[in-house]
Write a protein that binds this DNA or RNA. Sequence first.
DNA 1: TTGTATGCGTTATCAC
DNA 2: GTGATAACGCATACAA
Lengths: 383, 383
Amino acid sequence: MTRDCRGAVPHAGTTVAVAPVRVLQSHSSASSGRGGTVGVTLRDVARAAGVSPATASRALSAPDLVAPARREHVQQVARELGYRPNRAARELITGRTGNLCLVVPDLENPFFAAVAKGVQARARALGLALLVADSEEDPRLEAELVAHLGAQVDGVILCSPRMPDLDLERLGREVLEDDVPLLLVNRPHEGLPSVVIDNTDGVRQAVAHLYALGHRRIGYAGGPVGSWSDSQRRRGLEHASHGLRDIEVVDLGHFPPVFGGGVAAGDLVAAGGVTAVLAHNDLLALGILSRLRARGVAVPEQVSVVGYDDIPAATLVSPALTTVTVPLARLGRTAVDLLIEAGSARTTAPPSADPPGSVLIGVELVVRASTGVAPARSSEASG
Amino acid sequence: MTRDCRGAVPHAGTTVAVAPVRVLQSHSSASSGRGGTVGVTLRDVARAAGVSPATASRALSAPDLVAPARREHVQQVARELGYRPNRAARELITGRTGNLCLVVPDLENPFFAAVAKGVQARARALGLALLVADSEEDPRLEAELVAHLGAQVDGVILCSPRMPDLDLERLGREVLEDDVPLLLVNRPHEGLPSVVIDNTDGVRQAVAHLYALGHRRIGYAGGPVGSWSDSQRRRGLEHASHGLRDIEVVDLGHFPPVFGGGVAAGDLVAAGGVTAVLAHNDLLALGILSRLRARGVAVPEQVSVVGYDDIPAATLVSPALTTVTVPLARLGRTAVDLLIEAGSARTTAPPSADPPGSVLIGVELVVRASTGVAPARSSEASG
DNA sequence: TTGTATGCGTTATCAC
DNA sequence: GTGATAACGCATACAA
């Protein structure tokens, strides 16, 4: 790594006036001369507008409380002076930071990246900034981050598929003490608001699709043990298969929900005698796809593969992956809305009014090239 | 989307004591009774430790200034009381927020996701939180975000491949006024610190590799017009080819640096009579790969493909993509370090001491299955 | 080395 | 509807 210190020549064009002395006297309104917008305080605005600081404050933060004429005048003056409220001072007295916080296991995981994008967009639309923390898949660190960052934000959104329930319990209490709303993504928990994906319906759609294509023996490559969404999807799988004649679901086991996990799962698919496999998520499915190809198993001619989430990479491979589309950006936006709602409910209502809500995000199967009609089989059951 | 308000039954197990009255009297040390760690102020610590607030402050923020015995005592007391400094109050007086800000065009783009991850990790290691903003590929929004968020952080890291130089110039000035260091990623600019990738060397390695495999006619699928890294890579390409006998570089044009752009580029590859193609980045290369496959062009037997960046998806496809590995996480970490350096230099040194530094991040070609020996050709030049 | 006192910029509480 | 004034919690200049 080379270090390249660039041109030692200072700007030659305009002369930037840098004040060499620090003025520490009482507010000497730096507004005379275009010295910059730095340090324009509310008092400056008030003075320039000929009103008291209190009125100036109200004119900007609670316009309804001030007479229309004055209000507009103050706002005009503030604009001219380039006034920008000091967030620290405001926070110090209101207790609100104007920031939200998002904790995810891995920013590079396209699933969380999409959620983060949605969260960020909605937060900004509401005039809030977003602190993002990556826990590096470490539940312990997640808890620490929530506790740490929770102190400097108005609300926390936590994506923590694998944090033990007990830790969650504790976090919930801490957060209640600190009066900072905590929202869970893709994981419900008693007493906490959450936004979750409809796992059972997604699985149902996937199974129905495969069944319609003639598949009767379907493998499931599961996610990590202890993952809430995995247990949900297993449940959905059972439920869905109950309604269909002659179907058999083969549990291929638990796998890390990444590409590498899919490679391992791929071998079990090949060995399991199934004609189709549903993976816990797309990364896993892509790994399976890759492994099957390497072993010379044709997809979808010999085996059909279905993923979950519909991450961008699902369309980059060939055959493109049939998968369950999860509106991740919407999930993120909804999370913010619900969090805000929880926050304002907390201040409006007495101690604990209504329990925090939980929102279910609908999903939709999108059929691509990785699924096809089941290969002819030695039929084993009579019709 | 269903709305499911969960169980209306309050907690039945433990009884959570919620204080129904708000204590507004002078500090009545809530430490008696385990009422919670909320509101433990420095004065409380001072009182409990039997020292003045000033000493308590120093014991925690400037330990060297207080006698060892007292110091440890105060720290102990603070720990026991669960004291946590109020960031707003601290910021109000010190002017430092303890936050950095990162602005990227698209959080879902694996390139920026990786950078963000590195930035976040390093920031946390330094005890700083990270505000992340996604500009949705809109340079105008980027400028606005920097201006807006810059006011509430100690430094800004900007990834803005396509922002016009003029806007950058203006941002640089604004930021200088606000006294907030601004650092550019993958884009140098006079007067601003930056961390950039070694584009010319990456291209050189790629060309050398292809040349060694016997390729003599190599296509380049470029990035967007106005992209600094694209112009750098084109320059590197020229330079690299000058040193090699009998080589010809074919400019395939400018493409949006996404999968779809690669699809378009793929057709030109097929039509251009080249035996190898170097893409501006991996997404583009993946699109080319996909298009070539769709058209029945074998990779690498007929055409070799090289990408740039080495995003995770590069190994998910088959054939796996030969590409130039960019240590993106390191890039992010370096950005933070350099930004901090710039920040402290700003306060330490008089007005403008030394111009901000620029760091060059080295890259390395990683050879995978998408490149192979050049097909036999109708040799056109004598040896 | 330690304590006292002041101020950071804003909003909230009161009187008017 | 408006203005004086007191906090908010902390760090620091200054005196001791």
